[in-house]
Nucleic acid binder design. Structure first.
Length: 512
RNA sequence: GUCCCGUUCGUCUAGGGGUUAGGACUCCAGAUUUUCAUUCUGGCAACAGGGGUUCAAUUCCCCUACGGGAUACCA
């Protein structure tokens, strides 16, 4: 079986895509790229009632941010379109297969009302039946092709009664299939029910649409979350009933991503409670207006996000952890995906971001990003060399580009106040005089750069008989107003002579 | 309830019949840095429990517990 590699990511636009969905998309992407296969984006919007405005657009944007590009899809087009299931349904693409199933006896009409279905469930619940649902045991007592005469069925359909088409699940059959992550998985058909294939109104359910589309789009591997594992036997039966079992795609069910505390599948709800984001990009709910801040807006690099996500449920088998996009594409293997659910770990994600900030990103790129971040903070005419200086001084001590500004503000503007605790501890009687004297000594430094500054300071301190330890800390306070940060001499070199001397003299005055 | 999937340091994980059970994050300590951070070195810390099989089980099998998923005219 050598079917060309083709995979799809098929989200439902019922809300913003969350991190678990992003990982599913990523695994599909990595697999497709590694094999030179097709990657498509299909929108599963068969439940028109649950559509959320802006969700589809959000999905596209988020994936674009992460650099997950599609070969075919709602935006890209392609030979298997349309790629929105509601449009495919309008074209009658599902109806014909439902009819085929009806004709071959694999499906049947059912006319039960919602109340009747509910009554059936209540009854089964009371009886404590071990197997619940609309199935071989119960369909004989419901309103459908099994209990109605063919004439009456035809009449009801013809007169426009509301009906659904259900799958005729065999009563006693072992259904076995292979999953690349889990091996052989088997279910007994008696545990399954007669799922609705075509809803009243003619829209297909997920199950029918999914199987038909994967077949028509020539999908070779279905890579999706574990929540779909229990519906896979139905899908297998559908492929069989439709006569497509020979070309049925391979199944890959990914372990779920749990909340950081391990309590349940990751959700926006617990995210809010525990204070972490579950969305790649910021999302504003159109109904409530509530805003959920995304990872992009928090300052995470897409590359760091991808690296982190790739390792959530998969690993290459050795100790390599920092892998860029190309490396991931090269090393990714479906066979090495884990079977057990995984906790979402913020600390590790932050660490990845720091790694990308320190060692995986070109300085020029950081400069570009810093310029944007600075602009957002009101610093809009910083020169290239100034930005470069900030990057060099700050990249090893922050987690995000924007922190170079919040934590290195003194590099861009003179301090307006001085840290009280540090002042009390470091600024003594004579300190002000020393600072003025040092400023005068620095006045003579011809080439304003690190080595010359250090030498000049060394010479001045020796001449004045003052230990260097007595002046470094106050010098830092005078220049930055705070206690931590890059080397004092580095800061002075970066600031330039006029600015440095001005700050020194100002501090001597205001600190006494 | 029933079915399905799972269970190695706090977290992400490697491993696999005989290992000092390895790495990463977090945390702690030391070195470097006259600050902070980086970097480096070291440390704490795990095979869910019970039965088998076997000379030997964390590894294979069964049971239990626990976790998760599914049981919709939602995906």
């Amino acid at each position: 079986m050598t079917k060309p590699i083709a995979v799809r990511f098929a989200p439902s636009p019922t809300g913003p895509l969350h991190i678990g969905g992003v990982r599913t998309a990523l695994y599909n992407y990595l697999f497709a790229r590694q094999h030179g296969g097709r990657l498509l984006l299909r929108i599963e919007d068969t439940d028109q009632g649950r559509l959320v405005e802006g969700a589809e657009n959000y999905i596209q944007q988020s994936l674009a941010w992460l650099g997950i590009r599609f070969d075919e899809g709602v935006a890209e087009g392609g030979p298997h379109g349309p790629y929105r299931q509601s449009e495919r349904a309008a074209l009658g693409m599902y109806q014909q297969y439902a009819d085929q199933l009806l004709a071959s006896g694999w499906a049947y009409y059912a006319f039960d009302s919602g109340d009747e279905l509910e009554a059936m469930r209540d009854r089964l619940q009371k009886e404590e039946a071990s197997i619940q649902g609309y199935n071989a045991h119960t369909r004989g007592s419901m309103l459908n092709s099994f209990t109605l005469s063919p004439e009456e069925v035809q009449e009801r359909v013809a007169r426009g009664d509301s009906y659904v088409i259900r799958f005729n699940m065999p009563a006693d059959l072992d259904i076995e299939f292979q999953d690349i992550v889990r091996g052989t998985v088997s279910f007994h058909s008696s545990q399954l029910d007669d799922k609705v294939l075509l809803k009243a109104g003619g829209m297909p359910t997920y199950h029918l649409a999914n199987v038909v589309d994967d077949h028509l789009m020539e999908i070779s591997h279905v890579i999706r979350g574990e929540e779909w594992l229990s519906s896979t036997p139905l899908h297998v039966m559908l492929y069989r009933a439709l006569g497509w079992e020979d070309t049925m795609p391979a199944f890959v069910h990914l372990p779920l991503i749990l909340n950081p505390n391990g309590q349940g599948k990751m959700s926006k709800r617990t995210g809010d409670k525990l204070g972490f984001s579950v969305f790649p990009c910021t999302w504003q709910d159109p109904e409530s207006g509530n805003v959920s801040v995304g990872y992009r807006e928090q300052g995470y690099f897409p590359e760091a996000m991808i690296n982190f996500l790739a390792l959530l449920g998969w690993n290459p088998g050795d100790e390599e952890e920092i892998m860029d996009r190309d490396r991931l594409i090269e090393r990714f293997r479906l066979e090495r995906i884990n079977q057990s659910p995984t906790n979402f770990n913020l600390d590790k994600l932050k660490w990845f971001n720091e790694q990308y900030l320190r060692t995986q990103t070109e300085e020029a790129e950081l400069v570009r990003q810093l310029a944007a971040a600075a602009k957002a903070e009101g610093f809009d005419n910083l020169g290239e060399s100034q930005l470069q200086g900030v990057v060099r001084l700050m990249r090893e001590r922050v987690s995000f580009v924007h922190e170079m500004i919040s934590q290195g503000r003194f590099l861009l503007e003179a301090p307006e106040s001085y840290d009280e605790a540090m002042k009390a501890k470091q600024w003594k009687e004579q300190t002000g005089e020393w600072m003025l004297a040092l400023a005068n000594a620095w006045e003579e430094v011809a080439t304003w750069e690190l080595m010359a500054l250090e030498a000049a300071t060394e010479a001045w301190a020796a001449g004045a008989g003052i230990g260097k330890g007595k002046i470094m800390a106050p010098l830092r306070l005078a220049l930055t107003g705070v206690s931590g940060g890059p080397g004092v001499m580095d800061i002075a070199a970066f600031l330039g002579k006029p600015e440095t001397l001005a700050r020194l003299r100002k501090a001597a005055h205001s600190l006494g």
